[in-house]
Design a protein around this nucleic acid. Structure first.
Lengths: 160, 160
DNA sequence: TGCATCTTCTTAGTATACTAAGATAATGCT
DNA sequence: AGCATTATCTTAGTATACTAAGAAGATGCA
């Protein structure tokens, strides 16, 4: 048996039916691996994707603001953006109104990539939710969000 | 403003309402960060936790079998187990029936930790699902599992 | 204007987990 | 018994993302 069969893997997943944390880990990892497989050929890695995606929505924002929107640390953002800049996907400019800030802009190339890569999200999303009704997907999002909110509050209160 | 307020962070989360992948990332990260905060004082890191947890269910299994059950790569398992061994949480012994295998056993210390640390899972789980009915939690697990299964199939078919 | 303050960004070090490639050692067929 | 095969485990290198600490530079009050 060269690799584990699909039935084997499914059995492994069921072993965690009692843990939402593990299920979330599997969902997250499956999503990003599948997406990376589809975006790699365009020179976009798993780590760059969230930044690109957010910048397609709005660019010309500061690194700190970008970190906030992606719920990332400033250090993580700084390292990732260095990579994106080296790939020619972004360029940075000092904010004239507050020259402490560096504003991040997409290059024309990165902007054009949106047309190619945004459908990828929809593809992955469609594959992931195959067999689920729109109502079920909506319910899932709602439940996930309530969990995120619960845990954020927990973390918040344990800090104070 | 020293750190972003809770309202700020909630706003950031909502920016991803359309992406199950991001919600899963947030859920996974929130879970493991909160759990790590609670287990660190017992010398158990986020990376060691899954192995310990699986071994509490059953130890005396090979490293490869452990990898399979946790959906981890063998290399990842090998590195993590080296750490667990150094911490005195596991020891390894050659399988007599097939001496190519190394079987992994919990130490008495690690076994005793279960009593202290298993309640932590339940605590985190309870915090995460606060305000959700048992039916909603069950429905959430079912939906997440269907997504994992969908993505596993996708990955499987794209490999062949 | 000058200096303290504040924001923003970067560097350094660490943890987790991946892939690829190879070492090791037992198994089992001829 | 010998040797090819196989399973298992390890090493090396890379990617992602964290925390802590600090540099750099702009702001704004005295």
């Amino acid at each position: 048996m060269p690799t584990s069969s699909k039935a084997d893997r499914t059995a492994a997943y069921w072993a965690f039916e009692d843990s939402l944390g593990y299920l979330a880990r599997l969902v997250f990892r499956s999503f990003s691996m599948l997406r990376e497989a589809k975006t790699r050929e365009h020179g976009v890695s798993a780590g760059h994707w969230p930044f690109l995606r957010q910048l397609w929505r709005e660019d010309g924002v500061s690194q700190h603001e970008l970190s906030r929107r992606l719920v990332m640390q400033d250090a993580t953002t700084a390292v990732a953006l260095r990579g994106l800049e080296k790939e020619g996907l972004i360029h940075r400019r000092v904010n004239r109104r507050d020259r402490r800030e560096t504003l991040v802009y997409l290059t024309p190339h990165a902007r054009a990539l949106a047309g190619t890569l945004l459908p990828v999200t929809r593809e992955v999303q469609a594959a992931a939710t195959r067999g689920l009704s729109p109502e079920e997907v909506e319910r899932l999002r709602g439940l996930l969000f309530r969990i995120v909110a619960n845990l954020a509050e927990e973390e918040f209160s344990s800090r104070c």
